[in-house]
Amino acid sequence: MTMLVLTCLAQVALLTVAAWTLPVLARPTLPFGVRVPAGRTADPAVTAQRRRYSRAVMTLGVLAALTSAPAVVLRGTPDVLTATAVLLGAADVALYTAAHRAIRAAKRHGDWYAGTRQAVTADTTWRTHPVRPPWRLLIPSLALLAGTAAIGFARYGSLPDTLATLRGLGIDAQHRIATTPATAFAPVLSQTAITVLVPLLVAALIRARPETDAEHPVTSARRYRVYLHGIATLLLAGAACADLTLLLLALQQWDVLAPSPLTTAATWAPMAAIAAAFLVFGVRVGEAGHRLPSLSGESGSGYVQRDDDRHWHLAGTLYINRHDPAILVHQRLGGRWTLNLGNPVAWTVLTVLASLALLQLLGVIDLPPTS
């Protein structure tokens, strides 16, 4: 019960910190997903929404902690964790959306782009001299995958008729499933998916449309190169961390390691480390590298980045532009990338993913399980 309460409190803290940091880590010219000129980043309407959002998020986090922990004790089931995550997440999204709408209304009513010269910038060196990911970081992932598979093949013949299941943050020996090749080698299949998909994602991000600023094109291009190389490094290192966690989980399922609080802590330590690395990187570098120092000697171009709010929907998370050939674009929220739904290729990708999910739901195919 104590572990369940601590897990619930940790979940609330994680969601609250994540929601609070969203506007903090965002680019100054994109407060709450709204494009504003550089001269308006400290506008009273923007600062007021930042303060209001921060106070509301922290207040919700405290209330969620005070109500969810007693609920876990009374009910004694993990269902409270799911309900808390859904309700708190929905409330934080509502607060972010309200701030987005308020700033967008102030921008429209104040005509913030009046008298500015809007433009976009292009840099052909992204094609001739792209960012080179550190592909050598794939070696640990491949080694962990091969090692896990070798141990699995060696242990398979002596496994019991049932295996412990993954529940919460560790192995639940009380709930067991039948031993089959699919259940026994589920960690290996998950490792394979991660080891294949993460490099493909890195390769796609390298070719995605770069985030450069028309006001400072040279500085922004340099910053984005550093940012993109860092993201690629963290993703490839994260794949190795995920594979290591899966190896330790597999060893517990295969009765090589005995489940215990210490083992659980060691199992999830790699994922905690890479999550901390992403957070530190985001704080020091910022989204699209905007926190990095500027190049000395570069003066402003006299232009401001073009106001493209009309192409962004759902508080800056959904991008639709039929005239933009880019497939992947940098999202305005959370330092991620998203598909350009104005490009037919994006709909092809979504159709394939939806078809696979439907076929698995109907039982036609079996996708690799995650535990």
Rank of each mutant, 00 (worst) to 15 (best):
I194S: 10
H129L: 04
L88C: 09
I194L: 14
Q118E: 15
A83R: 02
T41M: 13
P181L: 03
A184L: 07
L292Q: 12
F281H: 15
V364L: 14
N340K: 01
L262D: 12
Q331M: 11
L244Y: 13
T82C: 02
G170S: 15
M3S: 14
W135M: 02
D366N: 12
T29Y: 00
A346I: 05
M1K: 07
H229M: 09
Q331F: 00
V46Q: 14
K107I: 03
A106R: 12
A99G: 11
T212E: 15
P293W: 04
S301M: 04
T264W: 07
A38C: 07
S371Q: 13
R155Q: 15
D92F: 00
G302H: 10
A69P: 00
S190L: 11
D172M: 03
L362N: 05
I177S: 08
V196R: 12
A237R: 05
A182G: 07
G61S: 11
Q305E: 15
A221Q: 06
P270G: 06
L9Y: 01
Y227G: 02
D324H: 09
V24M: 06
S294Y: 00
I171N: 05
R132C: 03
G300K: 07
V62L: 14
G110C: 04
A326N: 06
F278R: 06
P133D: 02
G157D: 07
G316T: 05
A91R: 08
H290M: 04
A18W: 00
A102W: 00
T162Q: 15
L350M: 14
P133C: 04
P181C: 12
T165H: 09
R222A: 15
